[in-house]
């Protein structure tokens, strides 16, 4: 099977994958347990799991003899990106305000 990269929106656009994410947001599950919730073949479930994994939505961990799917917060890193963006944004804007106010002090003393 050819490897295909999916963007976040394509990943979530599929109803089965959305349902998997919902189940995994409640608890980590083995691939078998996950498969039992769906009316599809085990390989089909594995394919969805692979897609969710490659997009960073879940991580897969071997615990004992079982392979678990765990909701991964890296898939949600965009929040941190927003925060970093606005953090830098405000810092530079407030510096500008400071410069403006200093200018004001220079021209008319309080």
């Amino acid at each position: 099977m050819a490897t295909q990269t999916y963007d976040v929106f394509q990943v979530i656009a599929d109803p089965s994958r959305r349902q998997m994410l919902q189940l995994l947001s409640e608890d980590s599950l083995t691939i078998n347990a996950l498969a039992s919730s769906f009316d599809m073949s085990r390989p089909a479930v594995s394919k969805h799991v692979k897609i969710l994994h490659s997009a960073g939505f879940i991580s897969i961990q071997d615990i004992g003899r079982e392979r678990y799917c765990i909701l991964n917060h890296d898939g949600f890193a965009e929040v941190q990106e927003w925060i970093d963006y606005f953090d830098a944004f405000w810092k530079s804007k407030l510096k500008k305000l400071e410069a403006l106010l200093n200018e004001k002090t220079g021209s008319h003393k309080l």
Binding site: I12, A13, S25, G75, W82
Partner: peptide
């Protein structure tokens, strides 16, 4: 600031999401 995670219920509930996602 909220993540995609907070929007998951919305994604899951919203049947029109696939269309919106494609457009976006």
């Amino acid at each position: 600031f909220k993540g995609l995670k907070n929007y998951l219920p919305y994604f899951i509930m919203n049947k029109g999401w696939a269309k919106i996602g494609k457009r976006l």
